[in-house]
Design a protein around this nucleic acid. Structure first.
Lengths: 356, 356
DNA sequence: ACATTTACAGTAACCCGTTACCAGGGAGTC
DNA sequence: GACTCCCTGGTAACGGGTTACTGTAAATGT
């Protein structure tokens, strides 16, 4: 006899608590109570119920339960893509902490389509998600602020919490938590690292005007230069995306344009650095003997190419976001959290003058 | 006047369709119909309803709706971790395809705790997920088969589909789809690549006895050797995990043990290769001049260290899994899908004899 | 032996939408 | 002017659970 018979035969109708009750010869209330275990049920009755549950392979419907009882909602994370390590690490932290607190994790990637964000926030309100975590730098224009304010109040009205990660706080009066990296501090530290190695002409790769992640890193770079009495040269600041291809083509172009007028490179991300290193090598330049380079993020390619970079506690960011969202604290009263960063020294920086 | 007043004041009770009905002065049925739009509602009535919806910021409850109408369920993916690129790419494919088909993606990482898998499958049955996608190689023992068979029938009984990714099919009679890479073919091809470059002593790094991913790759390696008339030497096959650390320590140990008796290395994964390359370099050996090396997976570090490797269509695997699960086909009748692989030649393999 | 808890099971209301069914009223027709 | 018919809106049942309330019988107290 096929032990899965019940699963394969008959109509597709799922087993409900009423079926279990009928099969066990008790009322639905008794089945519910026997399974919940919070109400006195006679041992023999409980056994009957559990046997019926087993025989029918009954699985309670979480959606139905959620209607009557306030059950914990899911944690939703909105990122650009899963296959970018920056986001993957953060998502990992979110998932771990959500699971630790008994929540399911919903994931949504917006890719290059910004249209998907509002649709997803709306869906999360409908799904009664407990937390919605928006990750990644943005351009802080009025449209953005208005949109976020709308999200924040809307989610709050639906009982959800909004957490902004890797982007600045919205300010008082907007019910949203904020967790961000100290990008300016990290950029300052690693620029200082280059400066103290004797470098004065440091090419900055990967400026995305208006983007908060970019702006804060550039700010740290400039501040460090100023602190060391070095005048910032706009000609050393190059625009570009945060990916490998951008690092490669930008560096390629720079080297083709004229004589090399820098001794070191500050890549806004490790991916940019990886692309830049490839371009430098193709141009016959050695790292770090001819050109020093540093990155930012400390994601996979960094270790393999021996890149000195700024380590970000990605996973901790994700965990902190979830902890905060589920803490029950008042988002209006909570100050933004800033996570510290630290330099990881590998072998992509050469002390200037040691060759002389 | 604060436009968010309603969101901040009053009790936490959410706005229901009844509130909207009362506010608009119509019945709940009318509200539902005005929003659904599939039933004739007088334009003026619809306007009243929509205004009430706007003023109260009403958001329908997806859980409640799911109770009355058969709405699409979520797609759930179970992976080891998000921050491993192998899984991240697959998850990316799953999320993309799920979103394209209007489904939400639930993600669960099991980490190192196998206990979480059954709990998650149970939760997915309760959540009425439409598809559950289990990813990653496994050890095919009786316990595993029994567990999967139970999952498959249980999920089928709950109306969910089970998809196994990156692991072999369970056989006839078990309602589960299977999508896997052609690991044996890929391993055969890349081993043949080394052999045709003149290598005969190829060190295999990263054997995990019993693990299906490992076994299939080793099988391809051995078959290629046999096809070229090279006798496999067990002393060249080394056990180890699939991560960078394992590649590093295993290679380190091998080099310390005695004279180098191999000219090339086949690393079971790119991460192993990255670790091995580091160990080789520390030992003063150049890649590829002194030792050739190939990897498997074609994940991020590969490009940066110029690793010749086997490209896997990770994202396509994820997409295929979702497509299959939502196709409405009968899992009992569907043959397993095998996705082809191809070699990516970079610069980590040296033709033997070119130095002579 | 009688009163009073206590233990346990059942009935029914409720959660929040959707929709089958029903009914009122205005337009169109003879 | 009486009579369909269509347009539109309301009433109520339903989906699958949970739980307040009710009721009964057994257990305990004196």
């Amino acid at each position: 006899m096929d032990p899965w018979e019940h699963a394969l035969s008959g109509p597709a109708r799922r087993v409900t608590i009423r079926d279990v009750a009928a099969h066990a010869g008790v009322s639905v209330a008794t089945v519910s109570r026997a399974l919940a275990g919070d109400y006195p049920v006679h041992p023999s009755t409980r056994r009957k119920v559990l046997r019926a549950v087993r025989e029918l392979d009954y699985v309670p419907n979480a959606q139905a339960r959620a209607l009557s009882v306030a059950s914990p909602g899911a944690v939703a994370i909105v990122i650009h893509s899963v296959d970018s390590p920056y986001y993957a690490y953060i998502a990992q932290g979110v998932e771990e902490q959500a699971a630790a607190e008994g929540r399911l994790s919903l994931i949504c990637t917006t890719g290059s389509d910004p249209e998907r964000e509002p649709a997803f926030v709306q869906t999360m309100r409908e799904q009664r998600a407990e937390a919605v975590i928006l990750v990644g730098g943005v351009v802080l224009d009025d449209d953005y602020r208005e949109r976020m304010t709308r999200y924040a109040h809307g989610l709050a009205a639906s009982g959800s919490r909004l957490v902004l990660c890797g982007r600045p706080p919205l300010g008082d009066g907007v019910p949203a938590f904020t967790v961000d990296f100290d990008n300016t501090g990290g950029a300052h530290a690693i620029t200082a690292h280059l400066l103290s190695a004797g470098h004065r002409r440091i090419l900055y790769l990967g400026i995305r005007p208006g983007n908060t992640t970019s702006d804060t890193r550039v700010a740290g770079y400039r501040a460090a230069l100023a602190d060391h009495g070095v005048t910032a040269d706009p000609a050393l600041e190059m625009c570009g995306d945060f990916d490998r291809r951008s690092g490669y083509v930008t560096m390629k172009r720079r080297l083709a344009e004229g004589p090399r007028d820098f001794t070191a490179v500050f890549a806004a991300t490790d991916l940019i650095a990886a692309g830049a290193v490839k371009a430098l090598r193709e141009h016959g330049l050695r790292v770090p003997e001819d050109v020093s380079i540093v990155g930012y993020d400390d994601v996979p390619p960094a270790e393999d190419i021996g890149l000195t970079t700024v380590h970000l506690p990605h996973t901790e960011l994700g965990r902190a976001a979830v902890r905060l969202a589920l803490s029950g604290r008042d988002p209006l009263a909570e100050p933004p959290i800033t996570l510290g960063t630290h330099i990881v020294v590998r072998c992509s920086v050469q002390r200037l003058g040691s060759e002389r």
